[in-house]
Every structure is written in C-alpha cells, then in structure tokens.
Nucleic acid binder design. Structure first.
Length: 730
DNA sequence: TACTATACGGTTTTT
DNA sequence: CCGTATAGTA
C-alpha cells in the first residue's frame, strides 16, 4: 500500500484515501487528476474496501477509459478486463445488452452514430411527407437529442407553440421508427438505460447493491441525463447510497454548446451532501508565467467554484506575442519559429499549433507543407466514419438485424444494382402501409422492383447463410467479396485507399476479437454475439480523433481537441476578436465565459513555452476579414508578455496597404462601394458608444448601406447602418 | 442511372 | 475559399 501512495502531494493523498462518501475533487489543469482517479481505485481495491466488480468508473472518451485501465493494471497485479470502467455510452450499451428483453430491444440492436441518425431522420421526413424546409433534418436532430439529453420522452416535452408541437410529434414518430428497426441512437443508449433502472426495481436494486464506489471523470462535462443516471445508479436518496467520487474542473468546461451542464457540479455537491471538496491546485505541468497568465484570464469569469493553480517550477520564459499583418504572415512566422526551435533541439512532436476553429489549419498546413516540416492534423474523418467502411458495416448490420432500414437504404443500391429512386419509393410506401421494415416488405412487392430488390434480399440472406459458421474476420472478407464492394472500389480510379481501408476493417475485427474474447475472471462473459458486439464497438469507438503522442510531427488541432494534452511548446494562433473569442459566442455572457475557459484550456496546455499570435487580416469564407486583437490579451498582465512585433497604438490598418480584392466584395450583389465613400474594409473607425473598431465587411448601398464593425472589447461585432450610425474615421 | 453544374453555408465535438 | 448537397442533363 505504501508504494501506491508514494509521491502523492497532501491534497492528492487526501483525495485518494477519502472515506467511502461522496466527494468532489476540483482538479485544476495539470494537477494529476488521472493519477488521483486511478490511484483511488487501486487503493480501494488494495485495502479490500471493495471488490473489482463493485467499482463503476465513468469517463467521456474511450481514450480516457483505456488509460485508466492501463494505469490500473500497472499499479496492481489484477486483470482489469471485465471491470465496469468505460464511457457513459459504452457502459449503457453493456447494460442494455445484458438486459435487452427488459429494455424492449432486440438482442442484436444496432447503434446509430450521428450520421446514421441524420439519415434516419431524413428518411422519416420523406415517408411522412414533411416539408424539410420547415423542419430541417439537422435542426430536428438537434431538437430530439437535446430533449433526450434532458431526460424527456416526446410525451413529456412541454410544447407551447404549434412549431414545437409538430417537432414533438416528429420526435415520437422518430422513436417509433427506431423501435421498429431495432436501433438506438447515442442519447437513446443513456435514456433507455436510465428508464430501465427507474422502472425495474429488481435490476435497479441489483446494480445499486453492486456498485459501491462510482468514480466519474470530467464531471463538468456531464449533461442533465448523465447526472440523473448517476443519481439513480448511485441510489443517492437510499439508505445506503454508493460513494460517488467526482473529479472535474469547472474552469475547463468547454462543451456547454452540446449540453454539458457545469451546474451539475454545484447540484452534486448539494444533492449528494458532499462533505469533502478537495482542490488540487498544484500544477506539475507549466512554468509560472504560463500559469499566471491562465489564472489571470480565468479570474474574469463569474460563478466559479474557485481555484488557483500554482507551481514550484519557477517563472520560466515570458509569453511571446506576435502580431502579423495577414494570416499568411502569421503562418510563415510560426513555421520559421518552429524551424528555429527544431534546430535548437526541440522535438517536433512536442510542439503544438492550436486554433479556435478547424478552418484555420489550412494556412498553417500550407506553410508547413511548403517548408517540408512533418505535421499531423487532428480532427478529420475517423476510420469507422469513412464511407467505404460504413458501406461494409451496413451489410454486416443487415446480416445481424434485417430490420435496420438505415443500413438497408444505404446499400440496397450500392454497388449499383439498377434500383432507382422510383423502386425505393414504392418500397417505402409499401413498408409504411404494412408497418414493416423495408426488408420485411420486399415479399409484398410486385412488378420490376420485386425482381431487383428481391435479388438484393436474396443476396443478404445468402451472405447470412454462408457466413454463419465463419469467424468475424472471415465473415467480413466474404461479405466484401460477394457484395461486390471490393469489385466496385477496384474499378474506381481513386479506390486504392478505400480498398486498403476495407482490409483494415478486417484487421480491426481481428484485433477486436483478440481484445474482446479473452476470458474474464470472476465476471459474467460479455453479452451478445461477436458480430453485434463488433458493430456496437464500431459505432461507439469511431477511431482516434484525439492526438496521441509518438510521432515526431508538429501537432495541429483545435483547442477543444487539445484538452487533456500537454506540449513543451504551444502556439495559440488566430487570437483575434471575433475568432477567439468567436463572434457567435461574444453576445451572451455565458458564451463569452465559455470562450474564456477555452482560452484557459489552451494556455494551460503549454509546459515550457507559450506563443500567442494574431493576424490583422485573415482570409475567411473567401473574404478578407479584418479584426482587432483578442480581448483576452487585455486580461493577461502586461509584464508576462513579450511582444515580438512593435506594439501599435490602436494599431490595425497601420501596416495595411489596400490591395486588389480588398474593396467591398460582399455577398450582396449590388454595387455598394460608391455609396460608402469615406469608408473601406479594414479601416479604423470610432463610434461614440462602442469606441474604436475596424470595418470588417459591408453590404447594401445608399440608404441600406451597412457595415460590420468589430469593436473588440468595446462591444464586439456590430452591424451599423451608415445612414443612422455616426461613424467617424479614426 | 450517373455524371456535371450550381447553390449554399461554413465554431467547437464524443458517444 | 471550398466542400457538400441538390437539381439538371446525357
């Protein structure tokens, strides 16, 4: 036991060895959060307070779950396989597979990822003849998911207006369709699990008795439903509630836009009667100046639970700031600086380029590429999201569950088999009439579609029969060949990489079987057949999106993607008001605070050296945009910054020479420039109320002429009618 | 049915 | 600017 607790600081030790009560650990960036979490589990096990099966460990990403298991395995001589440590979704999937009957699901239920769900919604709208102009599928998807994540079924949603009432109806129709097809979307995994626990007392009792210690990572990212689920499974109101060990950092809550509720931390403290709130404030990652900047920035937020990071590492270097004229100059400077660092011995993999939005990577990539510096960009398509892989999976899904209409619609005519829109429409109408799945409707067809689609059904049945006794990889190989997928991509000019990905799918299945089917000690074997488990795995773990260490390449990623990572050298680029903080978030107080937390996350990624950079002009959506420097600069003590470029007073447009293409080219096809004489894009202006700003864009002419001005911290992005607003050139 | 033109929209993202 | 989605044509 002593070994285990060696080298923990006072707070970490206190957290790890807390008594079996609910506790909230406020873990600042770089304070050893994961270590505390895993050591806590190890300590609980080693001291015999709980058995392996009595622990429930919840994370948000598969990566975090895997890391926890790996570290745990390194600390104790135990077989961690079979432990209930995983993501919310992964654990709920496991739970629902074990109790599929009680959850009213087919044993082979499939999981829709975001794209599948959208396709299912589009199909539904079409079948119901709903005008998708009035009810955009994406918007409806967001509505449905938001309701589910708040814990509401369609019948529980309060609808006051006609529009919402209709959306609620569609929500109900969508759920009915999913049920008919035997598929569940991501939020459904949680909601279904929650409802089953709530409704079924024996099952609830069983799990409440079993999980005595529940540990939750990144608690600030939980949404309403996840919190409700935790409450339920912990039996928080019962005589013998489980001990919930919640670790999180309200200052790093950056997923509010997708439903995360920081407020859950406060609710947790109150509702679970948390007696112990422990703050981990010693930072082992960053030098002092970097930490001071981060602390200063985040101090501007209200409603914090309160925390101040410190380090004993010394101040280190100042934060370097570079102000470029244009985005291309910014990129050029970044790359030169990196080359210099590499010459001085830095490893490329220890250098990260961060940006607020992915579109910004383009210029940086271009510059890196032309310099020949190896780099890696995170945030693209993931393996299981590639179309060829999804096509292959669709065949497998049909084998497992023929009622999966999403899979059916995806591959019924891929590779093409002469089944056109007409035939499909006929089939969908018939399916609606008989209230059966597409697959089950085919025998009812007559005429030409009966032939063509009938042949497809025969193919799937043949595949199912022929692969019944094959191993998973053999099965996939057979399906790829007989379905014609391989032939299709072999014939395609650019099909080589797709073929390789299909082979990779077979390897993935081999690897999955290896990890998945090893015997588990003292634990029931995982429920479901290998195929269904593999398909669930493919939906739940679309492949790595987040960076992993290793390769010696400069790392490019959004600030969101950088959360949880650290680098010796970090560049935060594009620090312009309107970009970072993003203009869409500047308006509301809440939005701006989340942007600030994002900035806090970005800054705290750096170990030794931090660069901040901005560009006075930037190509965005095919237009040159002008901006003032980010208001976050004003929140960092001047003494921490070292400006590498001369500081210009209010200084934009000063280095600026108008060039071709900079005149008013706007989305409005009228000829505005004539009427805007005296103003041009990029110009410094002054407004009585908002102060100094820069004209960012313009539209309209004459009386309608409007300009968009970025006033930075004085008022953000504003549209002003020139005929009304008193703007003067500054 | 498959290919090409055009229109549109464009933070952040895991599961 | 640039990728995606839909409409239109061979």
């Amino acid at each position: 036991m002593s070994r285990l607790l060696d080298n923990l600081n006072t707070e970490q030790l206190a957290a790890v060895t807390l008594p079996a009560q609910s506790a909230l650990i406020l873990a600042g960036a770089g304070s050893g959060k994961t270590r505390v979490l895993t050591t806590r589990i190890a300590w609980l096990l080693q001291t015999g307070q709980v058995s392996q099966s009595g622990i429930l460990g919840v994370t948000f990403t598969n990566k975090a779950a895997k890391e926890m298991l790996t570290r745990l395995g390194a600390m104790l001589p135990i077989n961690t396989r079979g432990m209930w440590i995983g993501t919310f979704h992964g654990l709920c999937n496991r739970f629902l597979r074990a109790h599929y009957r009680e959850a009213a699901l087919p044993q082979t239920f499939q999981i829709l990822d975001t794209a599948d769900q959208l396709a299912a919604i589009k199909r539904l709208l079409k079948a119901l003849n709903v005008d998708d102009e009035k009810f955009p599928p994406r918007e409806l998807q967001h509505f449905i998911n938001a309701q589910k994540e708040a814990g509401y079924r369609a019948n529980a949603v309060e609808a006051w207006d006609e529009f919402t009432r209709r959306r609620v109806e569609l929500y109900a129709e969508y759920d009915a369709q999913c049920q008919r097809e035997g598929v569940v979307d991501f939020p459904e995994l949680l909601l279904r699990a929650y409802e089953l626990l709530e409704r079924n007392e024996p099952i609830r009792r069983h799990y409440q008795l079993r999980f005595r210690h529940i540990l939750v990572d990144e608690f600030q990212d939980t949404n309403r439903l996840q919190y409700l689920w935790l409450k339920l499974i912990a039996g928080f109101a019962s005589e013998t509630p489980a001990a919930v060990f919640a670790v999180g950092d309200d200052d790093q809550s950056i997923y509010g836009f997708r439903g995360a509720e920081v407020g859950n931390m406060r609710d947790f403290e109150r509702e679970f009667r948390v007696a112990n709130v422990i703050r981990l404030e010693q930072n082992y990652r960053s030098h002092g100046n970097i930490l001071d900047a981060a602390n200063a920035i985040i101090a501007n937020n209200s409603q914090r639970l309160g925390k101040n990071l410190w380090t004993d590492q010394g101040a280190g270097e100042p934060i370097r700031v570079y102000e470029a004229v244009a985005d291309m100059d910014e990129a050029r400077w970044v790359v030169e600086e990196i080359q210099q660092l590499v010459r001085e011995g830095a490893a490329r993999g220890d250098i990260a380029l961060l940006y607020r939005s992915n579109a910004q990577s383009r210029v940086l990539e271009h510059q890196l590429f032309s310099t020949g510096l190896p780099y890696r960009v995170y945030g693209g398509l993931r393996f299981f999201e590639r179309q060829e892989v999804k096509h292959a999976l669709a065949y497998l899904r049909l084998i497992a569950n023929p009622d999966d209409d999403t899979a059916f619609a995806r591959v019924v005519n891929f590779p093409t088999r002469g089944i056109g829109a007409r035939s499909l429409e006929q089939l969908q109408d018939a399916a609606r009439m008989f209230n059966t799945s597409l697959y089950a409707t085919v025998p009812h067809l007559n005429g030409k579609p009966a032939q063509s689609i009938g042949a497809f059904v025969k193919l799937v049945e043949e595949l199912r029969r022929e692969t019944a006794d094959l191993s998973l990889p053999e099965m996939i190989d057979h399906v790829l060949e007989v379905s014609g997928l391989r032939a299709h991509y072999r014939a395609e000019r650019e099909g080589q990489e797709r073929l390789e990905n299909l082979d990779e799918l077979i390897s993935a299945a081999t690897g999955f079987l290896h990890d998945d089917s090893a015997p588990v000690e003292g634990e029931e074997s995982l429920p479901g057949d290998p195929l269904s488990r593999f398909l669930a795995h493919a939906s739940l773990e679309a492949g790595e999106h987040q960076a992993d260490a290793g390769q010696d390449a400069v790392q490019l990623m959004s600030v969101h993607a950088a959360k949880g990572l650290e680098f010796d050298v970090v560049f935060i680029t594009g620090l312009e008001d309107g970009l970072f903080p993003h203009e869409n978030s500047i308006q509301e107080h809440e939005g701006l605070e989340e942007e600030r937390r994002l900035m806090y996350v970005a800054v705290t990624r750096a170990r030794k050296r931090l660069y901040l950079s901005l560009a006075q002009s930037r190509m965005l959506h095919g237009q040159t945009r002008y901006a003032v420097k980010s208001r976050f600069f004003d929140e960092i003590p001047e003494g921490l910054l070292k400006w590498l470029t001369p500081r210009v007073q209010q200084g934009f447009g000063q280095h600026y020479t108008p060039s071709r293409g900079d005149s008013f080219t706007t989305s409005a096809p009228r000829q505005p420039s004539r009427d805007l004489i005296g103003f041009r894009i990029g110009q410094q202006v002054r407004h009585a109320r908002f102060g100094a700003g820069v004209i960012v864009s313009a539209e309209g002419s004459g009386q309608d002429a409007r300009v968009q001005v970025n006033f930075g911290s004085g008022g953000g992005m504003k549209w002003l009618a020139l005929s009304v607003a008193k703007l003067e050139a500054a």
